[in-house]
């Protein structure tokens, strides 16, 4: 099958890329757009290392064809940071040792980003349930949960200060 042109808006930038219909979104992001943050871990939508944000949803990009994302707005880990510096989640993951080998980290932070958009004040239990689609082999999650809760607190404090 020939390649088709699809349009993706990734991290605020519009791209037209040629992709075979069967091309998986994670490969388009990693290889065509050179965004190496999303990783391939399990390939069967269990591990979440490939998680990106598509039109406000956390999606496992290894289980989506690029063609399905034609016209979509995508945010990857590379687009989470603000022009002022790292996103609070990125800072808190470092602060609380929420990562070790780093392989799950982009997907984990991208997922946590959406979780906090939907639930700015999660309990520990809600954080654990909210990141249950992301596997980590290194940290035992304890410090990831801590980092996400700390990020939520910081973001809420910043929001209050702004009001």
């Amino acid at each position: 099958m020939g390649k088709q042109i699809i349009t993706l808006t990734v991290n605020g930038e519009k791209h037209e890329v040629a992709a075979e219909p069967r091309e998986l979104l994670v490969h388009t992001l990693r290889e065509t757009l050179n965004l190496r943050g999303p990783h391939v871990g399990c390939e069967t939508s269990h591990c979440g290392a490939c998680t990106v944000d598509i039109d406000g949803k956390s999606v496992k990009s290894c289980t989506m064809f690029a063609a399905q994302a034609d016209g979509a707005e995508i945010t990857t880990i590379e687009g989470i940071a603000t022009p002022d510096g790292m996103h609070v989640l990125q800072e808190m993951f470092r602060e609380h040792h929420g990562l070790q080998c780093g392989y799950c980290t982009p997907g984990m932070i991208t997922r946590a980003y959406r979780l906090l958009q939907e639930n700015p004040n999660p309990t520990e239990e809600e954080v654990r349930f909210g990141i249950a689609g992301n596997l980590c082999r290194c940290t035992g999650y304890q410090n990831i949960v801590k980092a996400i809760l700390a990020a939520a607190a910081e973001m809420n404090a910043a929001r209050e200060a702004a009001q």
Binding site: R30, E31, L35, R36, G37, P38, H39, V40, T76, I77, E78, A81, M86, Q90, F93, R94, E95, H97, L99, C101, G102, Y103, T105, P106, I109
Partner: peptide
């Protein structure tokens, strides 16, 4: 001490073998 590795890993800038092109 906070880890020096984390800046690249948290920003998706790790360099794993499948990133070698």
């Amino acid at each position: 001490r906070k880890r020096v590795e984390d800046a690249r890993f948290t920003q998706g800038k790790g360099n794993y073998v499948d990133d070698v092109n």
